[in-house]
Simulated scan of single mutants.
Amino acid sequence: MAAISESRDDTARSTHVLAADGELFVSGGRTENELVRTAEGWRLSRADLRIAWKQGNPPVLP
């Protein structure tokens, strides 16, 4: 898959809601993405989540 020399940055707002063991955890922020146009179309080359706020206890990841 050959990349075409075209890229763009994209920013979006994001909210995540997780519920486990009766507890609710909510977080929100922005995603900062970098996209590259390939012969097959646009593809993500980088995706970062910047959490701006959270409410509740975050889940413990295994």
Rank of each mutant, 00 (worst) to 15 (best):
H16F: 13
V17T: 14
R30F: 11
G29W: 09
R43A: 05
T31N: 08
P62C: 05
A52I: 12
R30L: 11
L44E: 01
R46P: 03
L49V: 08
A2T: 15
A52Q: 13
E40P: 04
V17R: 07
T31A: 05
I51V: 15
A52S: 10
F25N: 01
D9E: 13
K54E: 11
I4L: 13
A3D: 12
E32Y: 11
P59V: 10
R13A: 14
G41T: 04
T38P: 04
L49R: 05
R43T: 06
S14N: 15
S14M: 15
G41E: 01
R37V: 00
G28D: 11
E32R: 10
E32P: 04
H16L: 14
L44Q: 02
V36I: 06
G56C: 06
A39S: 10
D21T: 01
R13I: 10
W53V: 02
A12K: 08
A2L: 13
T31M: 04
M1Q: 08
R43N: 05
A20P: 04
E32G: 10
A3C: 06
G22D: 02
L18V: 15
G41W: 05
A47Q: 09
A52T: 14
S27W: 14
E23L: 11
R8H: 00
G56S: 04
T15G: 02
W53K: 04
W42I: 00
V60C: 03
S7M: 05
D48H: 12
S45A: 09
L61W: 12
P58E: 09
W42N: 03
T38C: 02
L35G: 04
G22Y: 00
T15V: 15
R43L: 07
N33F: 07
E40A: 15
R30I: 08
T15D: 08
W42Y: 03
K54Y: 13
S27G: 05
T31G: 02
T11V: 15
V36E: 08
E34R: 12
R50M: 07
P58G: 05
S45G: 04
P59I: 09
R43G: 00
A12V: 14
G22Q: 00
L44V: 06
D9S: 11
R37Q: 01
T11M: 08
N57A: 13
W53D: 00
L49E: 08
W42S: 01
G28N: 10
A47F: 09
M1R: 05
L44H: 09
S5P: 12
A52R: 13
E6R: 10
